[in-house]
Nucleic acid binder design. Structure first.
Lengths: 195, 195
DNA sequence: ATCTTAACTTTACACTATGTCAATTGACAC
DNA sequence: GTGTCAATTGACATAGTGTAAAGTTAAGAT
């Protein structure tokens, strides 16, 4: 049932992904992608209407392959709000490096492109939900730091674990992934948990 | 002593700045700037070699006009590390909205443009210094939270007060400037200060 | 064996944006 | 007047995205 068209589509998606990671999301043109996929630039438009559509499809493809959703199932194991917080930072902190280039490409164009912004927000929605769950759990356990309303805490948590902050700390300040995870856990626990 | 050339240069810089703030740093072409400054597109290149150079010059111009440096002199009044931290969030939190569009434009191009990245880092250097001073002060007063090394704390503080985080909390989550400042102070104090 | 169709190719073009170049105009100084 | 500076106009080069048209190749149906 795997038609030629489906094969090529997959080849394009993997090529896009690999190029994005290789070049950290910068300087990847449609020509580059076509060359990497072994087809002509114009043939790309037989599969995807626009660059934006290709980017979004690649995000979904990577999500599927890497299975962030399955990774987040680790959450079922969590026994407390603090557990949830730690697992979230572990899973997400190890996930970011694998999608960094693609994420950069999307973040850079989302300002000018409405569709990209929408796709990005929908992808990030699941992370936002996770943040919400964590704060709710801390709230129910009565250990959410008193100075935070639940909605404010959710937004702040979501902001703290953003890809931009990961980039700043690892790419610019030179932290390792382990260091990022460890320090971020400290920051989040001190910020949101009264112990 | 104000030659015609100097006048035009200033006119270009103010036009660039205003356009950037109006359009939040997006979709501002050299043609747009020329039109707003009342000159031809080509004449821009008599004053600035490239778009990048114009952007950087505009940043310096805004810095001069808005006087971030003078604002940071408020720091002389600070009597403690905690004072420093609060003043920093106040000053910076009120400064960001005035440079947001321009900052966006620079952040978007710094990945592809080495000169932009360098200019940006040099501008942000003073903020990084401030972060360093704050952490040193907290360290000397023995109230820097034990889990942080001074260099790690500096990087983390610098990351927390980034423009990207301001954007996420205000533009995307809808917080007011006052709310941003208040919540950020809470986060930073809880994170870095042992009381 | 022939016809059809899907997938892809090549070539060409339109559009936008940055940046360069040459010839020209207008104003002002000496 | 002559020279010079500031700016103008128009033409052009380049890079990237996206569109359109005509031709090729190979698999499948009849």
């Amino acid at each position: 049932m795997s038609s030629k068209k489906t094969d090529t589509r997959t080849r394009i998606l993997t090529a896009t992904w690999h190029l994005m990671e290789q070049r950290r999301g910068q300087g990847v043109s449609m020509s580059d992608i076509a060359k990497a996929a072994g087809i002509s630039r114009q043939a790309l438009y037989l599969h995807f209407d626009s660059r934006t559509e290709l980017m979004i499809a690649t995000v979904h493809y990577v999500d599927e392959v890497k299975g962030l959703n399955e990774r987040l199932e680790k959450f079922q194991e969590a026994k407390s709000g603090i557990d949830l917080l730690d697992i979230c930072v572990d899973v997400w902190g190890n996930h970011i490096p694998e999608i960094y280039g693609l994420a950069r490409a999307l973040l850079n164009t989302r300002d000018t492109d409405e569709a990209t912004a929408a796709a990005w927000n929908s992808c990030m929605g699941c992370l936002h939900d996770v943040c919400h769950k964590i704060i709710e759990a801390l709230g129910e356990e009565k250990i959410l730091a008193a100075k935070w309303s639940r909605s404010e805490a959710t937004e702040m948590l979501y902001t703290m674990i953003s890809i931009q902050n990961w980039q700043q700390l690892t790419m610019e300040s030179g932290w390792s992934t382990a260091q990022y995870i460890s320090r971020m856990k400290v920051l989040l626990r001190r910020t949101f948990v009264d112990e």
